[in-house]
């Protein structure tokens, strides 16, 4: 086994995965250390969202080969909820609406399952309400949000803020935010970005999946990866994203062609 740096939180090795019999990931490699912020960019259909679903353990996505290690533990052996409890968080691109299920109750059950895992006491309804109210400010949400059903009738911005609220409550080690910036106006984007920044610490890591530079203007990543055809084609610093924004994805094609010529 490879020797892993103690600060490595997540390591993805040669990951090949499919959904509905269609292979989407064709060998993804990625290593993420504590304190880092990574951005993954790429065109629609390049496999960004699939990667996030596979890490989170969506049952419809099948891993064909490869490995995902979280703190040196095989993540692929775990159920989705077990992954969440040990500190993997996925911020959904399209958070689902669940009519009838109260947001407050949902948040409490989720938070307690995480607290139990990390040896903290579970909170009763009153204690939890105190906790959640304190966190609401982070995403500038009103307490009335808690009375409503999970995401039901929420605007796009409200849904994304609800995702960040969940992240604040669950305190994950690795947070993957799948196009959290899409569908947000500039104010909502700032709220979400500042929430994410406040939640990123030296001991946690964040993966931002995005199409656009504008989120990266708010949160400067340490690394930028460009995905294409189910693989990470290129890795660089923040300047790579700026270049991409300037040149568009066709620039990436050229890069691929050059690379293709070499081989």
């Amino acid at each position: 086994m490879t020797k892993i740096d103690s600060t490595t939180l997540l390591e993805i090795k040669d990951l090949v995965a499919s959904v509905e019999d269609q292979q989407i990931l064709n060998g993804v490699n990625l290593k993420i250390k504590a304190g880092e912020i990574h951005a993954i960019m790429g065109r629609n259909g390049c496999g960004k969202s699939t990667l996030s679903k596979v890490i989170a353990g969506h049952p419809a996505y099948k891993v064909i080969s490869g490995n995902v290690l979280f703190k040196n533990q095989n993540l692929l052996e775990l159920e989705a909820e077990e992954r969440a409890r040990i500190g993997i968080f996925l911020g959904f691109q399209y958070p689902i609406e669940i009519p009838g299920v109260s947001n407050l109750e949902f948040l409490r059950v989720a938070t307690n399952s995480r607290r139990k895992e990390i040896g903290e006491t579970e909170l009763d309804t009153f204690e939890f309400e105190d906790l959640v109210r304190a966190k609401l400010d982070l995403v500038q949400m009103k307490p009335t949000f808690l009375e409503r059903s999970v995401n039901e009738g929420f605007s796009g911005g409200e849904k994304k803020r609800n995702e960040i609220l969940q992240m604040a409550l669950l305190n994950p080690s690795v947070a993957i935010l799948d196009e959290t910036d899409s569908g947000l106006d500039i104010d909502a984007l700032r709220i979400v970005a500042s929430g994410v920044k406040k939640l990123s610490t030296k001991s946690t890591a964040t993966i931002l999946i995005t199409h656009y530079q504008r989120l990266l203007n708010e949160i400067t990543p340490d690394y930028v990866h460009i995905m294409s055809d189910g693989k990470i084609m290129q890795t660089g610093g923040p300047e790579l994203a700026i270049e991409l924004e300037k040149e568009g994805y066709d620039w990436l094609n050229k890069y691929e062609e050059i690379k293709g010529d070499k081989s």
Partner: peptide, 10 residues
């Protein structure tokens, strides 16, 4: 899946 991804068991 949404609920499970928040740590809630099946």
């Amino acid at each position: 899946f949404y609920l499970r991804s928040r740590g809630i068991n099946n």
